[in-house]
Amino acid sequence: MTSLAADGPRGRVRRRPLFRAPSIIPGFGLTFGLSLTWLCLIVLIPLSAVFIKTAGMGWQHFADVALSERAIAAYRLSFGASLGAAFINAVFGLLIAWMLVRYDFPGKRVVNALVDLPFALPTAVAGIAFTTLYTANGWIGRVLEPLGIQVAFTWVGVVITLIFIGLPFVVRSVEPVLADVSRDVEEAAASLGATRAQTFRRVILPAIFPALMTGFAMAFARGVGEYGSVIFIAGNMPYRTEIAPLLIITQLEQYDYQGATGIATVMLIASFSLLLVINLLQAWSRKRTVD
């Protein structure tokens, strides 16, 4: 399999080989086969089951459940809040990564560990904690309420929770790349007369942009799928603060399995398209900088 089409006879136009030319590292066939099998078992087969199930439900039923006004409101909240949270995470995650890479300070290890906490904490715990803090008599809610800002049981609460959930993704993907941007390059920019702001905008940011996009995409994807923490703070009012994953659960509780997969299909397609766009953006910005 490895030597497939790698070597055509001389004089003929060489086609691009379908597989990589034989490499000195052995085991391509084995690795490729195992990886593909594994991906099929874990990702492809379950996902195709979703589509097959959906395909069997008929258009009318699908439109009634998955494209209902209530479902569309839920999609809007899920995707909107996830995008917003991912965007905020991109900004503050970058800041935290910058601090961790560039400065030494007492307690750096603690901060480092704090960043990973959202990975480790059961999401329900986070959800309950946030809800307690932001309700009208919670520590923070008590302050915000008189100002007319309501967080708990509104979309704002959803965004805040998703920020928490997605934070580590941005920090951890930007950190190594930022550490890799050599001092030399910054000094070169400075020696050419660039201000700090110009150096950041024109030299550092382009270098870490692909990594930032990766972090953004992961935080976003995580946000779209998040369920455990959000349902506590969202309040789950149909049309207003109901997220799509919750809607799926609701359908399941009513034994409407096809309806649930219908909603899942819509989410899948939307997520996939968005991630594809982000990936293309990334490829475009990375293409030119690879050594």
């Binding site: 070169a188 400075a190 020696s191 900088t289």
Partner: peptide, 21 residues
């Protein structure tokens, strides 16, 4: 005076080129 205001040319050992430009 900071390097940015000195107007000297500096060439680095490892070139320090801007890779994305």
């Amino acid at each position: 005076l900071k390097v940015a205001d000195r107007g000297v040319g500096f060439v680095f050992q490892h070139y320090a080129l801007f890779r994305h430009m």
